[in-house]
Design a binder for these strands. Sequence first.
RNA 1: GCCGCCCUAGCUCAGCUGGUAGAGCAACUGAUUCGUAAUCAGUAGGUCGUCGGUUCAAGUCCGAUGGGCGGCUCCA
Length: 636
Amino acid sequence: MLQIELPDGSVKEVATATTPYDIALSISEGLARQAIAARFNDQLIDVYAPLETSGTLALITQNSPDALEIIRHSCAHLMAQAVKELYGDDVQVTIGPAIKDGFYYDFYSETKKFVPEDFPVIEAKMAELAKADMPVSREVMGRDEAIGMFREMGEAYKVELIEDLDVETVSLYRQGNFVDLCRGPHVPRTGVHKAFKLTSLAGAYWRGDEKNAMLQRIYATAFLNNKDLKAHIARLEEARKRDHRRLGRELDLFSFSEDAGGGLVLWHPKGAMLRMIIEDFERKEHLKRGYEIVVGPQILKTELWKMSGHYENYRENMYFTEVDEQGYGIKPMNCLAHMLIYKSKPRSYRNLPVRYFELGTVHRHEKSGVLHGLLRVRGFTQDDAHIICRPDQIDQEVKSIMSFVQDVAGIFGFEYTMELSTRPDKSIGSDEDWDRATNALRSALEDSGQPFDINEGDGAFYGPKIDVKLKDALDREWQCATIQCDFTLPERFDLTYVGADGEKHRPVMLHRVIVGSIERFIGVLIEHYAGSFPLWLSPVQAIVLNVTDNQADYAQQVFEQLRAAGIRVEVDLRNEKLGFKIREAQMAKIPYMLVIGDREMEEQKVAPRFRNGKNLDPCTVSEFIDFVAAESAAYK
RNA sequence: GCCGCCCUAGCUCAGCUGGUAGAGCAACUGAUUCGUAAUCAGUAGGUCGUCGGUUCAAGUCCGAUGGGCGGCUCCA
């Protein structure tokens, strides 16, 4: 007999090979009907999995947090089954996991090309299979037997998967005449699937390797019910409205031109203003923290890029030019100039660290398929700094960079995720250096109190790094801040400082950016604020609106007063109705509209209207100026 | 770069199975002077991304090419 402890603390005695379903049934028929899977000793299992040992058991119903993931994974099987039934031997199955917000399944076919028009057909077949409410059963098979079976079925990818598994047996899931290699767990019956939708098609390399075959991926999503599915689709629609590419055009911030070239941003006046505000902010914040501003050239001799290793490792991403038989590389990074500045005179240990900051504009030839609005471009400006310090200073420096990152994230109200990437197989430098650097990064991360992931072996070849990622409107993550420890470039460029002992020593260099690239940051920022920037960031902070021509002179005068006071202000004197002007200002997401009618003119006041529709009490121009100054000083 | 899809006026989109283009908004002109999200009327605007092919005839079919979108690989 087995002792099974339930979530309420009670213990049931059951025979060996009793299933979670049996136990559920013994509690209530309803529970048994609703059970999707079970959690046994912290492991997810099928409701029909026979229990072999004593332990704790919790049934997973629709309301459990794990339910959706299991349903989506099972729904991927349902989709694969539908595809196999419809397109049969033309299509081979590969893998189909649950992902955030849904699932996908990758198919291989030489003949069948999926098109969006197939979606309704596949969905209909899925609905039919779901309605048939087939039992989903698990079976365990010997490795070789399974290989033989899939080979016979013509499923070469499944064969390859099993061949790479170092196990004696594999588990298979069968529903109707569809069988798939899978770890599980799965829902007990296909009838569980009630709300699903195919969403998009994409290519994907087999096992994520571009040397492998290109598979056809069908993305889809599934929910517990149609209401949740509809809500999800509505959320996606909302996210589309926040898309920075759309808002960039609507708010007249920036554009791209085929004539200029892909990934090269054209900043319109309002976008350039936003950029300038952020750049001013950056300079101020860096000076406050002991950085010195430097400026390097856009192009440097090709020989220098050879010395740094960029020519060897980064060449395909670089643009080159030649003048008077001398080759130059357009900089993809700012570090070289900073090192040359460091090298321009002897350095003492007393004067370290040096912290060189540059809003450095770099150009990188990114593959055409990866360009994405402002989030992935070919020419961008980094808030880049290089800190050259003694090895014993790494710890302190990394900590201050982390706190800088936290300050900035706090000001903009960003949540972020962090990752530590450690030494890759192919790397240079001593174990001691790597340990010191990795520990410095790790302890700074731990001190930050924020959770972080570790990417083993994902560091740069010259040193470990911390990456900080922000999310866009669709929850896609984009790397912004990064902190990298570098022992190589100081070596290659023979950077030295004179120590207390009078000898020359090798410094360490930290590469770091806080927002990353201004372009990417603004892209994320636009989506974060949905275009409604806080006052201090708004390219236009206020707009003066007259009700009729009668107040035109006074409105113009108010406008000039505000502009003279340093407020970013516009005036709309057009012969249009007030409602029309307000609508336009509202759509331009301008924080304050200053309405001027005869009343205000008489009292020498303005009537401010906030973009959320609320009105402030009429006030004098100088009161409004003070108000704006106070608000924006606090980064609000 | 790879896979799929898309590309019609400044923007958002119509245009059935091929018969030489249409709406709304924006723009411009005029009238209106009207207090918190669209005043009315009129005018103008497109070699249907580009090049080539099929056809009596192509925005509509085929091919190539450029750009964009969604992924994959790569990355700030």
